[in-house]
Design a binder for these strands. Sequence first.
DNA 1: ACCAGTACTCGGTATCACCGAGTACCACTA
DNA 2: TAGTGGTACTCGGTGATACCGAGTACTGGT
Lengths: 108, 108
Amino acid sequence: MDDLTEMLKGTLEGCVLEIIGGEETYGYAITRRLNELGFADVIEGTVYTILLRLERNGLVQVAKRRSEVGPPRKFYALNDAGREELARFWAKWDYVSSRIDKLKEGGR
Amino acid sequence: MDDLTEMLKGTLEGCVLEIIGGEETYGYAITRRLNELGFADVIEGTVYTILLRLERNGLVQVAKRRSEVGPPRKFYALNDAGREELARFWAKWDYVSSRIDKLKEGGR
DNA sequence: ACCAGTACTCGGTATCACCGAGTACCACTA
DNA sequence: TAGTGGTACTCGGTGATACCGAGTACTGGT
């Protein structure tokens, strides 16, 4: 699949929120997870900028812990504001994707 | 529904292509159509920038015609390149939206 | 000592939807 | 005939976002 970056704008951050909401995790692992999910071209730098933004916006709780296989990891977990933002994201997604699907089915 | 602009990036252009693909039409009417479809906050300026981009990228055929109710209209129709681009857009949309829905269902 | 894999930071870029101000055409009415 | 409202398009500039590239740094194995 060719370049998806424009279409991911506004949704990738929500995907990262969802992944963090599922379990406490860290940037490198989130990137791998996104790649597995089919977003093969999403790269570490992109995920880290999202994580820094989430932190700046007070949507996550951060804890630095040592790792046995490399440098320390910054673990992210959703706080209450993050869970609310995630709910808003899915509401928006449902709204937008249903309208687009309707348009696609020739909805008039 | 609150602000959708970020989520529409990369998809709004495709929606415009789809609308033009359905029938030859013009900017003002496309905006009204998008508003009806649920994209209530999409404004004329946005649609016109998309139309100019489509024209610049050689995806549409343009014809200026007089109107009985106002200034002349620029009618847009897809050419072959536009139809190909539209097909690519829907392929991307299907790909991305299915992955995101899977993530939403807790797909692991 | 070197290297591969892991893990994060940061300055800069391109693209896109949006905004605002401007131009202009037409029909209707006071 | 001047004004108003609806129609229709243009263009310079803004902000948000994903991406890029270079850099830093820790660990374990050869």
